[in-house]
């Protein structure tokens, strides 16, 4: 079967992520053993930060799709909403899971209820779980689409909130390593690997969203064809 663009991006993204993990494990420089409780676990950030970037892309797409459906009633925008929520769920789980793995090694606990960024990101992921499961529980229709698009719009408030959370409430979560005024705290090799990982995750998530939109259009076409047969048989 001929490979589609979305599937090709998924494949390249996946290979890139696997390569990033391998390089993070075997090649990336170690951090100072005095600065961290668990210096080895720090390498999880080559997964954690790029997947958080991918999650923000996914939630951005969710916002655009939700707004597009609410204000334009566009089928394409509804497909974007679905793709964004599914991609947001997958990447959100990746971020939360990798964060828990690191937290367990570094803090001695996988979750800290007082950490604002951790919790706001957890909530963003929960919103994605809600959108995916909730939508699955309802028949497709304008009522379902309006309700979930509204939640998608409200949920987007959490994105900038999560982004600035460690700048406002630096309780336990490490502060930003890129995009800071002092130029960040990464050396060149770390920066390269982080960039490579970010590109790979971007490819994977864009590939996933394209495939997801294709799946939704198939489902809609199948539903229409079945209705045609219902009317005729």
């Amino acid at each position: 079967m001929k490979m589609k663009v979305g599937e090709a991006l998924l494949l390249f993204g996946f290979i890139g992520i696997a390569l990033t993990m391998m390089l993070a494990f075997l090649w990336a420089p170690s951090v100072s053993i005095n600065a961290f409780e668990s210096p080895a676990a720090q390498r999880i950030f080559y997964w954690h930060v790029p997947s958080a970037w991918a999650a923000f892309i996914a939630f951005g797409v969710l916002f655009v799709g939700s707004a597009g459906w609410m204000f334009k009633r566009s089928e394409l925008m509804w497909r974007l909403h679905i793709a964004g929520s599914e991609a947001g769920l997958a990447t959100g789980l990746m971020v939360v899971w990798s964060g828990c793995v690191w937290g367990a090694a570094e803090w001695g606990t996988p979750w800290d209820w007082s950490d604002v960024r951790l919790n706001s990101f957890g909530l963003l992921t929960l919103l994605a779980v809600y959108l995916v499961l909730g939508r699955g529980s309802q028949p497709d229709g304008v009522e379902t689409r309006d309700t979930f698009a509204a939640f998608g719009l409200y949920g987007f408030i959490l994105v900038p909130f999560t982004y600035v959370a460690t700048r406002i409430w630096a309780i336990r979560h490490p502060g930003p390593v890129v995009g800071t005024d002092d130029g960040g705290s990464l050396n060149a090799d770390m920066g390269f690997l982080l960039l490579f990982g970010t590109l790979s995750f971007t490819l994977l998530i864009v590939g996933h969203m394209l495939t997801s939109m294709r799946i939704t259009s198939f489902e809609q076409r199948i539903e229409a064809l079945q209705k045609t047969l219902d009317g005729g048989v």
Partner: peptide, 9 residues
């Protein structure tokens, strides 16, 4: 620590 990381990855 590296074993822990390997399992997580």
């Amino acid at each position: 620590g590296m074993t822990y990381l390997a399992v997580a990855y």
